[in-house]
């Protein structure tokens, strides 16, 4: 019965090749959408920032120390906004990095399976709570608590915002550091133990140094997250662009300013409106730089172990 064609191969072959090509191209277009997103972001930021820089010289923007965009006399020196962001970043980093790293060391080197099964999901939950909730928490939970300690703290202040931003980035620091520590081969730990060192000595002097690039990369990512954090700082840190390093005062970050302009009733087409894009572009560049840096660090670290 060999001569009887059971399958009409010829026809279906043609059809299937067409389907192949169509799906392939369709899928490719979807994947391309993400590239278009990046181009879209860059294009929008550049195009809309041009009207701003036609009025405000770039040097005034970068080095000016007074930001007064919404009322006369206007002034567009970005340093106070940058400073506000940095207070949040440094403050939250000072809290989140030690706690995150210590938790990671505890989870990967000391904790029992049972403890890990409790702490890890808690970290995941903390990471999944929306930022607006953290903003509310800072405003109504942390700030009154801080006021109990020191009554001079203003209602909107950088400190309570830093604390909640720290809580937000802490899970990321902890889980990325945990991954990095876990990737250190067990043989290295055994080598350390066999020489008669305690768990702490092995953790701090063998495992952490060996995982250092992964740990540093997680810090850089946390830095980038803290810079881009919006809702918590908008709600809790205030809207007063100020050149200060005092975390007890009200400040304004770059992200909070963007929200203020976009949600306020600022005339579309004014310089103040376009300043949103200049600040947004700066934010994008800083976070992009931080992300690329952390990828580069991580890549180096992967090479070390493969």
């Amino acid at each position: 019965m060999a001569e009887t064609a059971t399958f009409s191969l010829g026809k279906s072959k043609k059809r299937s090749r067409w389907i192949e090509e169509a799906t392939r191209s369709g899928f490719f277009l979807c994947a391309l959408a993400s590239v278009l997103t990046t181009f879209g972001i860059v294009f929008v930021l550049i195009r809309e920032a041009i009207p701003f820089f036609q009025v405000v010289p770039l040097t005034d923007f970068l080095f000016g120390t007074r930001w007064n965009a919404l009322i006369e006399p206007r002034s567009f020196g970005v340093i106070p906004l940058l400073m506000g962001t940095m207070i949040i970043v440094i403050g939250s980093g000072l809290i989140a990095i030690p706690i995150g790293l210590a938790s990671a060391i505890y989870l990967s080197e000391f904790a029992s399976d049972r403890t890990r099964k409790i702490v890890k999901p808690v970290l995941e939950i903390l990471a999944g709570i929306p930022t607006v909730v953290y903003g509310y928490f800072a405003l109504t939970g942390i700030t009154p608590l801080l006021k109990l300690i020191n009554d001079d703290i203003s209602v909107f202040n950088a400190l309570s915002a830093s604390i909640v931003v720290a809580v937000m980035i802490l899970p990321m620091v902890a889980s990325l550091c945990d991954d990095a520590l876990k990737a250190v081969p067990r043989a290295l730990r055994e080598g350390g133990f066999a020489l008669g060192s305690t768990k702490t000595e092995v953790s701090l002097k063998v495992v952490v140094p060996a995982a250092l690039s992964g740990i540093v990369a997680s810090f850089v990512l946390a830095f980038s997250r803290a810079i881009g954090e919006t809702m918590a700082v908008t709600l809790a840190a205030g809207a007063t662009p100020k050149l200060t390093m005092n975390p007890l005062e009200s400040i304004q970050t770059m992200t909070a300013y963007i929200v203020q302009v976009a949600t306020g009733d600022i005339e579309h087409g004014s310089v103040s409106y376009y300043s949103l894009y200049a600040v947004g572009g700066m934010l994008f560049l800083i976070t992009l730089g931080a992300n690329l840096l952390s990828h580069r660090i991580l890549k180096k670290y992967r090479e070390q172990y493969e």
Partner: peptide, 13 residues
């Protein structure tokens, strides 16, 4: 890299 872009930048877009 897109996964690391702050959400507010998507808002601007």
């Amino acid at each position: 890299n897109l996964a690391g872009v702050p959400s507010i930048v998507y808002g601007i877009l």
